[in-house]
Design a protein around this nucleic acid. Structure first.
Lengths: 250, 250
DNA sequence: CGGCAGTTTGATTAATTTCAAGCAAGGTGG
DNA sequence: CCACCTTGCTTGAAATTAATCAAACTGCCG
């Protein structure tokens, strides 16, 4: 049962300023390489061999190009997803067209699992920000499988609880810290903290980082200039951190 | 096995400006009335009669006075909780002593369940904001019970997923909306929207509402004055809303 | 009749967004 | 091989928004 459908639907003007072309994406059974990747994903890797195999068997992988929409708010939540490659941006849209990023999901991260037992459809939008491969699971099938193998629910508790804690971190970050502090905090998290000098390569554009931190791109840029005073040097996506301790003390 | 210990520990100066007196609270088996309340709680009510009874049997209820600390960040997360009466404020502390509210839990709401399978202890502080009765469950016992009755994990998925969605709402709210818009949004949520005029009685102080919405008390007060222009009248905790539609259109 | 906690109001400051313009690197086509 | 264009980023200036500081007000309680 392979869907192959490359038909381009008619363009839809999406209210803002972008002509959106929604493409039916290829949904394919997974390659062996992708399966190997998927087995390592936190949520999947907790399952027993038997159940893990059943999950892999029902997974289909999908390829997206930058700016492709994966799903939209209020659409029925028939699938949840796991990123194999690339980055997926989850965001809310305000009536006036403004966007607020909720989360930025990289390889190995799962999204929309929180809708598995929920009604009312997705509660945010998801779009690929790069050439991206995601795997999707049909919620009805997963629910049926969880009926038989309760370890799925246990793994989900861990997964969703971790996402809740991340979301809480993000909220507290927004409410307690200024732009330079948020950036410093992000850098510290990214440079795995043995007090040594470190250099980091951002895995995505600065605009995306800005969104993730709840900032306008200009504010991120200014935050970086501020941090220059604390020994942070930026060259494109390459960031040098002289002294992590100096950042921690902001 | 009833702990009764009213010993007041020595005061601890908590870094900010308040002399904290930490009290060992009474932990008691539940009264029949409290059990009846607890049976109606979203999470508990989903369980089968058998398992629900086992949960009720392991629950102990605790009474807190305003400003009592229920637990602190980084303490081992040996319990999770459910509010029967009163309100519990969950918040993060910054190094400089500033506080950011994460959630305000009222009767029927569960908190700290997300730490059930987590390590590293609580990730926020919890304090009673009024005379409050909460029930607590020992995580080790609940984990053991979940081992035998997998429906507990399923109920937890629903519970924690709902909390994640709330947290996401809150984050998006902060990032997309101004103070008056947030307040309008809160009022709309509280007045159960058949476009009719409505009046609401706040179940807690305005300062708490301000914290919940991520605002300073002064900002909340000013937001209310702004909303007067849209037909909102405030008398103490009583709020009159002339036209919900007018609010929705902000 | 104070006194106090919670709230409001005013004035000021701080942080960030918004708008506008300039800059740099990479890719394309002539 | 170079001019051109695009995209992403930076910078500056102005405008918004909310926090902060300080003082006055209110209702309630003793």
């Amino acid at each position: 049962m392979i869907e192959i459908n490359l038909l381009h639907l008619p363009g839809i003007y999406n209210g803002a300023d972008r002509l959106e072309v929604r493409t039916m994406q290829r949904s394919l059974p997974m390659s062996e390489g992708d399966k190997a990747l998927l087995r390592e994903v936190p949520f999947i890797s907790l399952l027993t061999v038997e159940v893990r195999q059943k999950m892999l068997d029902m997974a289909t992988s999908i390829h997206y190009e930058p700016r492709d929409i994966i799903f939209r708010e209020r659409e029925p939540s028939d699938f949840f997803f796991c990123v194999l490659n690339g980055y997926v941006r989850l965001y809310r849209l305000a009536k006036d067209g403004k966007e607020a990023d909720i989360r930025l999901c990289g390889p190995g991260e799962t999204f929309a699992a929180c809708f598995l037992y929920a009604e009312g459809g997705y509660r945010y939008n998801a779009e690929a920000t790069a050439t991206t491969v995601v795997v999707r699971f049909e919620t009805s099938k997963v629910r049926a499988l969880a009926e038989r193998y309760s370890e799925i629910d246990k793994a989900l508790v861990g997964l969703i609880a971790a996402q809740l804690l991340d979301s809480i971190d993000c909220l507290a970050n927004d409410r307690l810290r200024t732009a330079p502090q948020r950036v410093a905090n992000y850098l510290l998290g990214a440079c795995a903290g043995d007090g040594q000098a470190a250099s980091i390569r951002l895995p995505f554009s600065k605009s995306l980082l800005a969104g993730k931190l709840g900032l306008a791109p200009e504010a991120l840029s200014r935050a970086f200039s501020t941090l220059r005073g604390s020994g942070v040097t930026v060259h494109g996506r390459l960031i040098e951190i002289e002294d992590p301790e100096a950042l921690r003390s902001l």
